[in-house]
Design a protein around this nucleic acid. Structure first.
Lengths: 189, 189
DNA sequence: TTCTGAAAAGGACATTTGTCCCAAGCTCAA
DNA sequence: TTGAGCTTGGGACAAATGTCCTTTTCAGAA
């Protein structure tokens, strides 16, 4: 549920320490909005430490969480390839440390450093791979099964992530999530 | 709903004509299974002509259609970046012509041809961009709205794609799709 | 033409999920 | 310590969707 990418963060760290690649450090507190849907940005980010949520809000103010990103995951990168505003908002859940790379520097890295190029290519492929089964599973199975799956993959989920966010991730209302949680508890007694 | 990628197909065609890049031509009839979920393959494909569906089947035999791919879209490429079996099955809907490129040739192209590299990178980014709002929309709005949206984007949808496939794409049962279609018809009268 | 199997349409009922509330519990600042 | 505001939990009912079946339609094979 919260993926990490050890290779990408390690390599970015290496480039950062070497210097000369336009990689900067940034820090945020918990619950800060880092990118806002429909706005334009000129930097991409690689998480060093912490967790963010990446979500789409509709006109009624409902949020749908696309994914949670952990250490080594990048965001803001899609906008480099097609000159469009961001499709997702990104907000920190825990305090966050990240590397920020300007679009220009990112493009230079992609062109001149094939190791980096490959890591990003793989990261994009992983985002696609990861999303596909998730949405199909969420449609095909009742809420209870989705919760059980979540807890199996990530037992501390309810301690770190709010009920509201969990509901928005599964794509149900908080009411339905609560109902399902209650039934699970009753079954286990 | 059925995206195309004119740039990628044109450039692949160019490379194909030039020769020496290990690009082959393949053809399929309608309704043929081209890739099967959980199997391993050694080629990637770029569609020259026709439409395919890309779907995940669960253990109960339910299909969930991830996307329909049109001219210029690639498939089978995710498996190049992480050495895993296919996550989706791919089947032709119409008769299909495609370029096939072995993993080895594909890797060589990515490393030596930065134009190709960039086109693939952008194609991956587009797949992510495209999926995100779709799933969030499907969760947040009733079936009727999803059908209307589909018809707006792609009016001939019901002529080309079977009801079953449309239902599996929206993520509902055929019964529910029918109900919604009937209500729409009644409203418009 | 007639038959057959697949696709499409829909009736009846069960189940799930959402909506609209309100109440309880907790945190933080005045 | 008290009250404002957030998060969580849940009751009651409405609406959406699924399940199970049967019927209809239609294209292609015999």
């Amino acid at each position: 549920m919260i993926r990490i990418n050890a290779e990408l963060v390690a390599y970015t760290e290496q480039l950062f320490k070497k210097g000369g690649h336009g990689i900067m450090e940034e820090s945020y507190g918990a619950n800060e909005l880092i990118l806002e849907q429909n706005h334009r940005y000129t930097k991409i980010y690689v998480i060093r430490e912490g967790i963010v949520k990446c979500f789409i809000s509709d006109e009624n103010g409902k949020d749908f969480i696309q994914e949670f990103l952990g250490e080594g995951l990048e965001f803001g990168e899609l906008e480099v390839f097609n000159n469009r505003p961001a499709i997702c908002s990104v907000a920190s859940i825990t305090p966050l440390k990240a590397f920020a790379i300007s679009h220009a520097s990112f493009n230079t890295l992609l062109e001149t450093d094939m190791r980096f190029n490959r890591l990003i290519m793989k990261a994009l492929a992983d985002k696609i791979r990861y999303k596909a089964p998730r949405h199909s599973y969420q449609h095909a199975y009742p809420i209870e099964d989705n919760i059980l799956k979540l807890k199996r993959e990530f037992p501390e989920v309810t301690e770190i992530i709010s009920k509201k966010d969990i509901a928005n991730y599964i794509g149900v209302t908080q009411r339905s999530l609560n109902r399902a949680l209650k039934e699970l508890k009753e079954k286990s007694e």
